[in-house]
Amino acid sequence: MVISMSHEIQKAKAEQACEILKEIEIDAWLVWVRETSQMADPVLELVLGGDLVWQSALIFTRKGKKLGIIGNLDTNGVKAKGIYDEIIPYTKGIKEELVKQLSRLDPQKIAINFSTNDVAADGLSVGMHMLLKDYLQDTPYSNRLVSAENLVQKLRGRKTPEEVSRIRKAVEITEDIFEQATGFVKADMTELEIYEFFHKSMVERGVTSAWNEDHNPAVDAGPNKQFGHAGPTENKTKKGHLLHFDFGVRYNDYCSDIQRMFFFGEKKDIPSEVQDAFETVRDGIQTAAKFVKPGAVGYEVDAVARDFVKDAGYEEYQHALGHQLGRLAHDGGSLLGPKWERYGDSPMGIVEVGNVFTLEFYVTTKSYGQVSLEEDILITRAGCEFLSNPQRELICIN
């Protein structure tokens, strides 16, 4: 049996990489890797879709050239993907061929994958960087190496139509599972029971977890469970209490990330303290969605929601308003966040058409714990489009 795998997304992203190089006036991009099953550069899933064993150089140029210098036993597998114009195999060592090809192309700027701000653009290991400098020490190219951060952020962030289609489907499946959950959850269930229901639902739909399974979904019952990246417990749901979810699936390599709030009781039983908190979060997300558009700066979008929360009398949330979504739930690139040290320069990034972001934050009530929502949006030329159906009111479980 012959297994046929499509690499249409990788082909499109490789072409896109060359276009971005031209846009940002960098001559070449060198993806320099080895033994990627042990330590994979995050960009490989976009421009290769597989592993490489020996030292390998994937080179993209602003003139549209895509070539790979690959260990001999990897060659046929890479050729079969149809992504690269030229594959050059080597047997004993890559240095001579690498220098030869760089001399032929003679790039004045060579982008390589290091970044202090974005882990998705920081795939070059220290050892491989040292090795590259050693191979190039007697050439002019050693002094032409620059960070590929800007390139990688644009490449990951500007989703192709097929990438958007897959994210839409992931969101659709996530919302379907949430809808099914409204008929399953009830008071006096443990978080673990509810967690198992979500995992069974994912298996039934042929999808996997968008992040580590031990805390996907996050299931937070009642006023004393702190929200965050922690798993479910024996803590039980109770009448008059809130139930919070943070849940996402991976469909065909692309992710969703959505938060929802349930209340155990009838609508008329919702305490005003809870209702006010819910409306603040709901309306704050909508306010940010109306503001965000191509050309906006990440920290400016965050400030719209953050000021909305503070003006409503709540303490500001202790995280960024939104991260990018794609092959990973946290997909790197520009961040809709405050100018805090921990975020580096990511909040200074510019929002672009084709970016997919989350919009999420929480507020804390005095007696009922935290209230948090999260929606997924696509940046369009006109502003943004909600990929998820925004939660407009608390989901009441009678």
Rank of each mutant, 00 (worst) to 15 (best):
Q180K: 13
G77Y: 01
G93Y: 09
P223F: 06
Y362N: 15
A230E: 10
I285L: 14
H229T: 14
T61P: 00
M348K: 15
D188L: 03
D74I: 01
A296D: 02
I26R: 03
T36N: 10
D269R: 08
S256H: 09
I3W: 00
K238T: 02
Q391R: 00
D27L: 01
V274T: 08
A221I: 03
E374L: 10
K310C: 00
D138H: 13
M5G: 07
P271S: 04
W29Y: 11
R205V: 05
V249A: 04
V351P: 15
K339N: 08
Y84A: 09
V353N: 13
K366T: 03
K79S: 02
M1C: 02
C396H: 10
Q226I: 02
G284H: 08
E86N: 11
K200G: 10
G326F: 04
N72M: 09
R327G: 15
L102V: 04
G349C: 09
K169E: 15
A296K: 03
T280H: 11
G369E: 15
T208H: 11
Y251K: 09
G222P: 05
E315A: 09
L387H: 13
N143D: 15
T174M: 06
N398D: 15
A296S: 15
V53L: 07
D176G: 08
D269Y: 10
E204V: 00
R342K: 13
D376W: 00
G349R: 05
T358V: 13
S4W: 07
S165A: 07
E96W: 09
E19T: 06
K268H: 05
H129G: 14
F245V: 03
S367F: 13
H199N: 14
R62G: 07
W32Q: 12
A121S: 08
V292F: 05
K186E: 14
E352S: 12
P140A: 03
D276Y: 12
T365E: 07
A12N: 09
T208F: 06
R306E: 06
L30Q: 00
H244L: 09
S37K: 14
G265K: 12
F197C: 02
G127W: 07
P390D: 15
H229E: 07
E360N: 11
L155T: 00
G71L: 02
I350V: 15
G337F: 02
G383E: 07
W211E: 12
E97C: 02
A17I: 01
P89Q: 11
L387K: 11
V43N: 01
I285H: 10
F263D: 08
F278A: 12
P347Q: 11
I350W: 08
V171T: 12
K290T: 05
R34M: 04
T182Y: 05
L124N: 04
A382P: 02
L52G: 00
V53N: 12
K239S: 13
K186P: 11
C396K: 08
R62L: 02
V146L: 01
E8R: 03
H323K: 14
F386T: 06
P223I: 03
E35M: 04
Y299P: 08
R306Y: 05
F227C: 04
C255S: 01
L105N: 11
D246R: 10
E375G: 02
S147M: 09
Q137T: 06
D345E: 13
E172S: 08
V363F: 08
E352V: 07
G344L: 06
K200H: 13
A111G: 04
E45M: 04
I194Y: 08
L21V: 05
K81P: 14
T237K: 06
A230L: 12
K239A: 10
K66W: 04
